[in-house]
């Protein structure tokens, strides 16, 4: 398959760079797959999993926040957090899930609940991606 260049950056640095065959992401409007030669495109990302296909092999990762831009067949993914399935700390994710569920169940502070809901979403996404490994 034809390949294209993907760069993934987070505040912690360049998380991935390489030639890939396909990139699948979840946006607020649904799932979008990028293949080589995609038209110039931009979209915001939600919290969820992404799939990268390199050399016919699928790799999964969990992202939160950020956006994807395609410009002249260069794909750039800017994320707030990004972890490949093999790098996910599953114990930490499970702990975060537990803590967030507790806060949602007990807290009366609407702002704290809102933050906890986002944390829960991130934790669930990590757990889901981890299981795909």
């Amino acid at each position: 398959m034809k390949e294209f260049h993907l760069e993934i950056v987070t505040p912690d640095g360049l998380a991935y760079e390489g030639m890939i065959e396909s990139l699948l992401v979840n946006t607020s409007e649904g799932t979008v797959e990028f293949l080589a030669g995609h038209i110039d495109y931009v979209t915001a990302l939600g919290i969820g999993k992404i799939r990268i296909r390199e050399n016919g092999r699928d790799r999964f990762a969990s992202v939160s926040g950020g956006f994807v831009t395609v410009s002249q067949s260069e794909v750039k993914l800017v994320a707030i957090t990004f972890e490949f399935a093999e790098n996910i700390d599953i114990d930490r994710a499970k702990l975060a899930k537990q803590r967030a569920t507790d806060v949602i169940a007990t807290s009366k502070d609407s702002k704290a609940v809102e933050i906890a809901k986002l944390k829960l979403q991130r934790a669930l996404s990590r757990i889901k991606v981890y299981e795909l490994k």
Binding site: P11, V32, D40, Y41, V42, S71, I80
Partner: peptide, 26 residues
């Protein structure tokens, strides 16, 4: 350049700008 989007461009910008500001601040 012409960029294609699926949803309202303003919605995308509204979502991205706070993250952009945070990223630059960091």
């Amino acid at each position: 350049t012409e960029f294609l989007t699926d949803c309202d461009p303003n919605e995308i910008i509204n979502q991205i700008v706070p993250e952009y500001v945070g990223g630059i601040l960091y």
